Simulated assay, not measured.
Amino acid sequence: MNAGPQHFDALFAASDDPWRFRSCWYEQRKRVLTLAMLTHSRYRRAFEPGCANGELSAELALRCDSLLSWDLSERAVALARHRLTAHGHVTVEQGVVPDEWPSGRFDLIVVSEMAYYLSPADQEVLARRAADSLEYRGILLACHWRRPLEDGTTQGAPLHAALLAAGA
């Protein structure tokens, strides 16, 4: 089962920060660790599907010449656009991965805490699309909770296995 836009629009209608990205110590620390895992100080062109309200995007923006952030929720996109207004090199769009995928190649793709909501088959499609759009020596960083989730459809481990199998 894939969670659709209505699911996430309802979450963002109730709160502009439904996962407490700004206030939860776990989320703050995860962001710091995610950024610390990046192997370069600067990236030419990055893609972040599932950007939610743009908290991680704001940090990625400081390390990218160009950042494309997507979310399937119209409300999340509006929040992320507002959050990232000061960053003219960041584009925030509504997009549904893996059915849609941006054109071009990226030297950084960050898939963080969003693939739970995809079916295993869609996780495999996401993995192939990510691998196919990475530049030579590009970095794909995937970060997912590894325990069962209340509203997720799968755990993060199957996606990470699919990414490895796709060569991402």
Rank of each mutant, 00 (worst) to 15 (best):
A10Y: 01
L11M: 14
F12Q: 06
A13V: 01
A13Q: 08
A13L: 05
A13G: 10
A14V: 03
S15D: 14
D16I: 00
D17N: 05
D17F: 07
R20A: 15
R20V: 09
F21S: 13
F21E: 14
S23R: 14
C24G: 13
W25C: 12
W25L: 15
Y26F: 13
E27F: 02
R31H: 11
T34V: 14
M37D: 09
M37W: 11
L38T: 07
T39S: 15
H40E: 15
H40A: 15
S41K: 10
S41G: 13
Y43Q: 09
R44N: 14
R44T: 15
R45V: 14
R45P: 11
F47A: 07
F47G: 03
F47R: 00
E48P: 02
P49Y: 06
S57M: 13
S57H: 09
A58E: 14
E59H: 14
E59C: 09
L62S: 07
R63Q: 12
D65I: 00
S66V: 10
L68T: 08
S69D: 02
S69M: 00
W70N: 10
L72M: 10
A76N: 06
V77K: 06
V77F: 02
A78S: 10
L79M: 08
L79W: 06
A80I: 04
H82W: 09
H82V: 03
R83V: 03
T85Y: 10
T85W: 12
T85M: 12
T91Q: 15
V92G: 06
V92F: 04
E93P: 00
Q94W: 02
G95H: 05
V96E: 14
V96A: 12
V97G: 01
W101S: 06
S103W: 05
G104F: 05
G104A: 04
R105H: 11
F106N: 05
I109K: 02
V110C: 13
V110M: 07
V110S: 09
V111N: 14
V111M: 11
V111P: 01
S112K: 12
M114W: 10
M114C: 11
L118N: 09
S119H: 06
P120M: 10
A121R: 12
D122C: 02
D122K: 08
D122V: 00
Q123I: 02
Q123N: 07
E124F: 03
L126E: 09
L126P: 04
A127M: 12
A130V: 13
A131E: 09
D132P: 00
D132V: 03
L134Y: 05
L134I: 05
E135R: 08
Y136L: 12
R137K: 13
G138K: 01
G138Y: 04
I139V: 15
A142S: 14
C143A: 14
H144S: 08
H144M: 04
W145E: 00
R146P: 00
R147I: 03
P148N: 07
P148T: 05
L149R: 08
E150R: 12
E150T: 08
D151A: 04
T153E: 15
